[in-house]
Nucleic acid binder design. Structure first.
Lengths: 195, 195
DNA sequence: ACGCGAAACGGATAGCTCATCCGCATGTGT
DNA sequence: ACACATGCGGATGAGCTATCCGTTTCGCGT
């Protein structure tokens, strides 16, 4: 961790390239927010760029999706750190999971990135590992103090979060309904996890 | 319900067509069991038939998928009926949900069919409604006796089941791990639903 | 300011999957 | 056996992914 890799490291050198990179990302962000499945041809057309340009910056759809999701992942990594400073292990654990599901149902990119086992960008892998590590610590603390049932494993965190997000998407047609629904489902899950 | 519609009603008239219909379904069943995403071109090749033949019998991937899932849906409808005869509302409710998730993680076709809002085949809509109606009755019974928290709604059943199935697929690479994992997750959910 | 090399652009293009359409073959009733 | 209807099958087109390469643009050194 001597030289942390940040977004800037992967932005291109030339001005036009940097501008296009940002532009592509902006358009992609819009499409993701619309719920559109994010096709690179689409992105190129809506950005007024050639297909080649888009593909040079982001070799695959996955790469673009992961880049779109990166800021959100960074925020979650920060949340995890912050939660670890709370005194009550259970509250900290619950608060962290709440943040995670809220992010997931707010940003469709996040679920796909979280659910896929093999990432394209190293940065994504790194962030996911960091978030998972924080989650594992929070879980361990809560489990050790007897707040969480002992048979819950680190490896269950990501699947359960994705499951709640998926359930929320199945339930709600409109994005407005998603946040309360997700909170309700998480609430149920937390009751189930509580010892 | 005077004249129940069954599978036979949608099989073609001519012998060769009927044979091909069955054959396509068998091949599709195999592919789904393998976890393959079920592409109609694929089905045609593996069945030794023309693409046109497959598309005539099943206009879309969805139609084929729903037909593949139909027997399983019928079984679940039966389970729901049977569960309603049990005396203990909570046990009946839990047993039914267990059957549902077990089916879902055993048969990948089921999750997709359950999660999609608009069905292609009337039969699928009918069966889903039937299953949901049974689930709603079981839930109502369990809720009325105070076994289940009052804020759980009928409309939550399908999303929650799909969520658990999804979480299970995210968790387990190998099909063998899926059943125990799904049971564990459902167990947690049931604790959360219990009043 | 100018020119040159490198970097980036853009679209033509190839490969792939989905889906349709229609001439041909095959089954079925007379 | 014949004729008609029904079903077959692949050729075909539309859409998306991804690549490749000739052309343009940038920015640095002179």
């Amino acid at each position: 961790m001597a030289y942390p890799i940040s977004l800037e490291d992967m932005t291109p050198q030339r001005k036009d390239a940097a501008r296009n990179w940002e532009h592509i990302l902006t358009v992609a962000r819009e499409l993701v927010d619309e719920g559109t499945p994010l096709q690179l041809n689409d992105v190129a057309r809506r950005a007024g760029l050639g297909v080649g340009t888009v593909y040079r910056h982001f070799p695959t759809t996955e790469a673009l999706l992961e880049t779109v999701a990166t800021p959100c992942l960074e925020a979650l990594a920060g949340c995890g750190q912050q939660a670890l400073t709370h005194n009550d292990p259970w509250t900290a654990f619950a608060a962290f999971l709440t943040k995670v599901v809220e992010s997931q149902v707010t940003d469709p990119a996040l679920v796909k990135v979280a659910a896929s086992a093999h990432d394209v960008l190293p940065r994504t892998t790194e962030l996911k590992a960091q978030i998972l590590a924080n989650g594992a610590k929070l879980l361990a603390r809560a489990r050790d103090t007897g707040a969480v049932r002992p048979d819950v494993d680190d490896a269950d965190l990501v699947p359960l979060m994705c499951g709640i997000a998926y359930a929320t998407y199945v339930h709600s047609a409109s994005p407005a309904d998603r946040l309360p629904t997700a909170r309700r489902y998480l609430d149920t899950l937390l009751r189930g996890l509580h010892a």
